[in-house]
Structures are given as C-alpha cells and as structure tokens.
C-alpha cells in the first residue's frame, strides 16, 4: 500500500467515523425525544402516587425509562418537603419500590450514578445499610457523598469510623468535611467529642470537629481549641482556622491566644486573630489592634480597623486617635474605616 493510498484511506476512515458518529447521536436524540413522553407520563404518574394519602398496591415502575424517572422524581420531591410530609412521601416511594431501583443504581460503574444513588438511598431506612457500604467506594466523591447523606439523615456510623474510612484531614481535605462534622454533632455529639481527644488524629480533622462543636453552641471545648493554637506553633495554614474557631466560640479561655496571635509573624494569622478579637469584643486587644493599623498587609489593617469599630467606644477612640496622630498608613486605615462605617 502506498503512502498516498494510505492518506486517502485515512481520510475515508475519519470521514466515515465522523458521519457515523453524527448519525448515531442524531438517531439517539430522536429516539430519546420519542421516549420523552413516556418519561413525562411516568413522572406525572409517580408524582401523583408519591403525594397520595394512601396507596393500594401501586404498580412499580417497570422499564428502564420509568425506573429512572421514578427515582429522579422521588429524590426531587423529597428535597422539597420536610417532617411528616417527607415521611409519608418516602413511605409511598418504598411502596413503589424506589429504594430497589436506587440499590441497582448504587452499583453502577458510573461514579455520578452511584453518588446520586447514595444521596437518595440514605433517605430510606431500608437503603442505609447499602450507603454505609458505600463509605468504602473506590471514588472519593462517592465516599464523601455517602457520609454526608448518612449524617444528614442521622444514620452515620461513629465519627471516628468516618474519619478513618474517608481519611479526613489527610486524603480528604474538602471543606464539606466541616458540614459533615456539623451533621455528626447534631446526631451524635459524644462521638465527635471523643474525636477531639483521639490520639493521632490529623489536626485538620480535630479542628473541624472542634469547629462543629463550637458552632453547635458547645463552649466546653474552647480550652482545647486554645491549646491547639499554642501547639500549632508556626503552622500558617492551621492557625488562621484555629483563630476563626476561637472567634466563633467566643470563650474567655481563647483570649490570651488571640492576643498572642496579633503579633504572629504570618500576616494571615495576624488578620485572623484581629478578626477574632473583634468578634469576641476583646477590649484588651484595642492597643494591639491599633498597632496593626500600621501593618504592611492591607488585610491585617482592614481586619484591625473592623475589629476596633466592633469594640465600641474603646476601639473607636483608638481609631479616632490614629486617624489624627498615627503614621501615614495607620492614619489612612483609621480614617477610611471611620468614613466607611459612618456612611454605611
């Protein structure tokens, strides 16, 4: 075969593949549009059944299109309702064998399908065992989604087991871990409290646990968070998160750590400490915050100005003094802060 012939054959091949592929997607689309009415009919039928007050041996969805439509509409409607309405809706979905459909989807080779199945299955008591198994899924998104779904439905295993299975704070660094911890606190605060004292736990996971406990209004762990601030040393990534947690907790045991943070070498830490001082109403920090108005980093100056304003009369006096007699940078920061707060 000559090169010339090969070139023509390549062109013919590419052209054929392209045309066949285009024909295939067009055909698939036409068929799919034809199925649209079946899908819509099933959605209508299932919606009506899900909302019915009593179901008398309803026909479970049969074909693939019907099963897909039923699973989707059940999840969509379950997201819209709460309390007894949701329980009634889920009972009707059980009668329609929706969990059975979701169980089939939970072993799909497509991670997206498995994740959606996990989120929906966790709504059903009969599906939670399977969702628990999905904490060992090969895909990290599915594992985290399964844990979140279980926690939201107050059916999660103990927090320590979730940390281990998902590698929280090590392999899994998602911000959703904070949501997960908060849901775990709602269902089982004791298991999250145990986490805080668990040896060898990654700091990020421990902090997420402390943060979740703080957000739930439990202040008894504030001394531990303050100690974490001391032990974190120069960890510039962890310290700002610790200061944010201290700011949220607002407990006096964190005040000395916040005051120390104002002079930390890392600007991110100084800014977080300044913010925490403001949210804590830490009047003793007013002088330190005043010094930070001359910080080389704008974020630090901004947070310090904001905090001083939040401190009330003591902080505003510092701002007024510095706007008059401070260094050029501090004068600008103080004046702008006062101007902004006065006009907003």
């Amino acid at each position: 075969m000559t090169t010339l012939l090969a070139l023509w054959q390549l062109s013919l091949f590419l052209c054929s593949v392209a045309l066949l592929a285009l024909a295939a997607i067009l055909l698939a689309r036409v068929i799919s549009e034809g199925r649209g009415s079946r899908r819509e009919n099933e959605r209508r039928r299932v919606s009506g059944l899900l909302l019915a007050s009593e179901l008398d041996s309803p026909r479970a969805p049969r074909g693939r299109i019907e099963r897909d439509a039923a699973a989707k509409v059940a999840l969509e409607m379950a997201e819209l309702v709460r309390g007894p309405d949701r329980e009634a809706l889920l009972a009707n979905a059980e009668a329609l064998r929706v969990p059975h459909i979701l169980l089939q989807k939970s072993v799909s080779r497509v991670p997206q399908e498995r994740l959606l199945a996990a989120e929906a299955l966790a709504l059903f008591p009969s599906g939670r065992k399977r969702v628990g198994e999905m904490l060992r899924d090969r895909n990290p998104d599915v594992r985290l989604g399964a844990a979140l779904a279980l926690a939201q439905n107050q059916a999660a295993p103990p927090a320590a087991e979730i940390v281990r299975r998902l590698g929280l704070g090590t392999r899994e660094r998602s911000l959703l871990v904070a949501s997960l911890m908060r849901d775990l606190v709602d269902a089982d605060p004791a298991s999250v409290e145990e986490l805080i004292f668990a040896p060898g736990l990654p700091d990020a996971a421990r902090l997420a646990a402390a943060d979740a406990l703080a957000a739930s209004g439990r202040i008894e762990h504030a001394p531990l968070v303050a100690r974490m601030a001391e032990e974190a040393g120069q960890d510039e990534e962890l310290l700002p998160r610790i200061y944010h947690a201290l700011g949220r907790i607002g407990h006096p045991s964190g005040h000395s750590a916040i005051l120390r943070g104002l002079s930390h070498p890392a600007w991110t830490v100084r800014a977080a400490a300044a913010q925490a001082a403001g949210t804590n109403g830490l009047v003793e920090a007013a002088a330190g915050l005043g010094l930070l108005l001359d910080d080389p980093q704008w974020w630090v100056r901004f947070r310090a100005g904001e905090a001083l304003w939040r401190l009330g009369a003591a902080g505003r006096a510092v701002l007024t003094d510095l706007a008059r007699d401070g260094s050029p940078s501090a004068r600008e920061a103080a004046a702008r802060t006062i101007e902004e707060r006065a006009t907003s």
Binding site: L7, S11, C15, A18, L22, I25
Partner: peptide, 19 residues
C-alpha cells in the same frame, strides 16, 4: 490527499466534540 486528510480530521474532531 493532504487536503482531504486535513479537512476530514477537522470534521472528525468537531463530530466527537458534538458527541
């Protein structure tokens, strides 16, 4: 032959993107 290969490859890429 070169023009045909170049153009059909362009069409091939576009078709796969549409898919």
């Amino acid at each position: 032959a070169f023009l045909a290969a170049t153009f059909t490859f362009g069409i091939f890429i576009s078709a796969l993107t549409l898919i």
